[in-house]
Write a protein that binds this DNA or RNA. Structure first.
Length: 255
DNA sequence: GCGACAG
DNA sequence: ATCTTGTCGC
């Protein structure tokens, strides 16, 4: 009889690593949709954002959020908040194994309840190809859902020589206005993403990378076009609404 | 060995 | 991710 046992953390990470390497080959790094070819993204009507928010002392309970916004108006057309019980811990490089299952469930609910509102592209809070094994959560969600995805991280993941060193800070300082960007090139010369000044009033950039079914330049341009503030509106709305859900359903513990 | 490390 | 108010500036 085959015995199953909870793998040690290190073995679990090895399994996850090979899973990421396997799925990495399924990522499509070019524009596959008609609207992506158009200078003004004509034909793009719905963009989504996903995020998970947690309660302070509980890292196992979270509110999984999916929002669909109109484009280019960026008004919320659909919202889904769902409390979920996470099983996987947060380990840098393996964020997808912790959060993706619940994001896929949210997309599934959308498909069943409002199929007409299925998004044409999903913004994910985190990285895509800008990852240790070039398969961050944006790629993971993209490959498993089949939807075009863009990864937008608020902090730089230190992969293959990328770091917030002097040279990096210098390049950031050179970003003059919203829309300006520079490539994030690894020590081996590969471009894994771009640092983007998402709007005029932010000195701190966001890190954009390919998730699935979109080119890097299109992802950067689209991200900029979805920014009212530093963080793309779809992700920002998902964050705001999931936190609001927690505030109203799980009031801070009193004395 | 030490530090760094998406959310 | 989360703990946290006001404050300075456009």
């Amino acid at each position: 009889m085959t015995q199953m046992s909870a793998p040690l953390a290190e073995d679990q990470m090895k399994e996850w690593s090979s899973e990421q390497s396997r799925l990495r080959g399924l990522v499509i790094q070019h524009d596959t949709e008609p609207w992506q070819q158009d200078p003004h993204f004509s034909g793009l009507k719905r963009v989504a954002g996903v995020d998970l928010s947690f309660i302070k002392g509980d890292d196992a309970s979270a509110c999984a959020q999916l929002v669909v916004l109109s484009y280019p108006q960026l008004e919320v057309l659909y919202e889904d908040s769902q409390m979920v019980a996470l099983t996987a811990p947060y380990i840098t490089g393996f964020l997808a194994f912790r959060e993706t299952p619940f994001l896929l469930e949210a997309l599934k609910r959308l498909q069943e309840n409002k199929p007409g509102l299925m998004p044409q592209v999903v913004f994910v809070d985190g990285n895509g190809l800008l990852h240790y094994r070039e398969f961050g959560i944006a790629c993971h969600l993209g490959v498993l859902s089949g939807l075009p995805c863009v990864g937008v991280a608020k902090n730089l993941l230190n992969v293959e020589g990328l770091a917030k060193n002097e040279e990096h800070r210098s390049k950031i300082a050179a970003l003059q206005k919203g829309g300006d960007s520079f490539p994030l090139t690894t020590s081996s010369g590969k471009v894994l993403g771009k640092a983007l000044r998402s709007w005029d009033k932010s000195s701190k950039p966001v890190y954009v990378s390919i998730g699935h079914k979109i080119s890097l330049d299109t992802a950067v341009k689209l991200t900029h076009s979805c920014c009212r503030y530093r963080v793309p509106e779809p992700i920002r709305q998902a964050d705001i609404r999931s936190r609001e859900y927690l505030r109203s359903h799980f009031p801070p513990a009193d004395t």
